[in-house]
Design a protein around this nucleic acid. Structure first.
Lengths: 203, 203
DNA sequence: GTCTATATCAAGATAGAC
DNA sequence: GTCTATCTTGATATAGAC
């Protein structure tokens, strides 16, 4: 995702901030370090972000927007019908893990920076999650199933980002298999009228 | 869990550090703030933890030990048989949510502090997770099921801790229901010989 | 073992040259 | 718009009294 030459200087500065935070921890994400990483002076950096809250807000907003784009396009790419968002996430989150994991760690470093500095700055990411879970609640599966499956997927990524567990390809494959079978069952059961508590009526 | 009068001063200092970090963010978890929270002078605090890495290491070690005790006792309290650890976690993690959530946020603040300061300090918590997932791999359920269910549970808590989604009682109840049904099915299928490696065939 | 006082240094932020 | 230089603050860490 767009950190090519064409990206604006502002974006390059946000890239540098993410990189420093992900590599060295947010406590060392100083203006000096970010400016050095981006190859500009501290004065140049401070022209774009006049204080640290603004820098972190910019990081979180961009990361939230990236996440939103990711799951909405995953949704668009999945075929219509029950479990569309879950199917999209399974497709979109377990593919190309190698490159995706590092990008994930980078973008989540914005959340860590926000939590460390000023928890209110997490808001844009909360908003993205509200939107995602809006889709999931309306995904046409028995009550709570879509949210549960998505939480399992995201939980695995959070383990990775928080460095609580290593996430290797074998883990991804195994979990993907379990989730796809659970999804298939849920879709099956949502076709049987009266088999679930809350309602999905297939046309 | 044990922050009564009987706890050592060292434990009280760790309590104070957790409290400050959880309440104000790890960037404001300074020696001054921790000492003030604990009601001692900075010099008194520095006698126990001579630098910040040692303080954070103490926090992580204690939190990891608490988590280990939590899931092992959950395991012990569950009846033997397939899915014992998952059943224990469902019982132990969805009960008494009100008090558990704040304590969870407090103890996870040690992980955030470690990630911010020096990612290597997370190690004791990684060790606890290795142990937990060792139990889960050997939980007598079809391959990957126990890990997946546990990841969904923990993912919900991580949402709470990272403030990405609010976690209210209704979410807990709904997800618990879904997980318990999935667990019941997995136990069922693990009884059928030959059905466990990859496949799940609906009866 | 706990305190006060203080040295040292780095980070956030500002001013103003170019 | 980007730079250098500098101010100010506050955090870590140390020294040494009690």
């Amino acid at each position: 995702m767009g950190k090519l030459t064409s990206s604006s200087l502002r974006d390059q500065l946000l890239d540098a901030a993410e990189t420093v935070a992900a590599r060295e921890g947010v406590s060392r994400m100083t203006f000096d370090a970010v400016a050095a990483e981006a190859g500009v002076s501290k004065g140049g950096l401070l022209h774009y972000f006049t204080n640290k809250d603004q820098l972190i807000e910019g990081m979180v907003r961009r990361a939230a927007e990236g996440w939103r784009i990711h799951f909405t396009s995953a949704y668009e790419n999945a075929s219509p019908g029950p479990g569309r968002m879950v199917r999209g996430l399974l497709q979109g989150c377990f593919t190309d893990a190698q490159s995706w994991t590092e990008e994930l760690r980078r973008s989540y470093s914005s959340v860590f920076a926000a939590l460390a500095q000023n928890p209110g700055l997490v808001e844009p990411m909360q908003e993205a999650y509200r939107e995602l879970y809006g889709y999931l609640q309306d995904d046409g599966l028995p009550d709570g199933v879509a949210e549960t499956l998505a939480t399992a997927i995201d939980g695995l990524w959070l383990y990775w980002v928080l460095r609580l567990r290593p996430v290797v390809q074998a883990d991804l494959d195994r979990m993907r298999g379990v989730l796809e079978r659970a999804l298939a069952q849920a879709i099956e059961s949502s076709k049987e009228p009266g088999s679930e508590t809350t309602t999905y009526q297939k046309p």
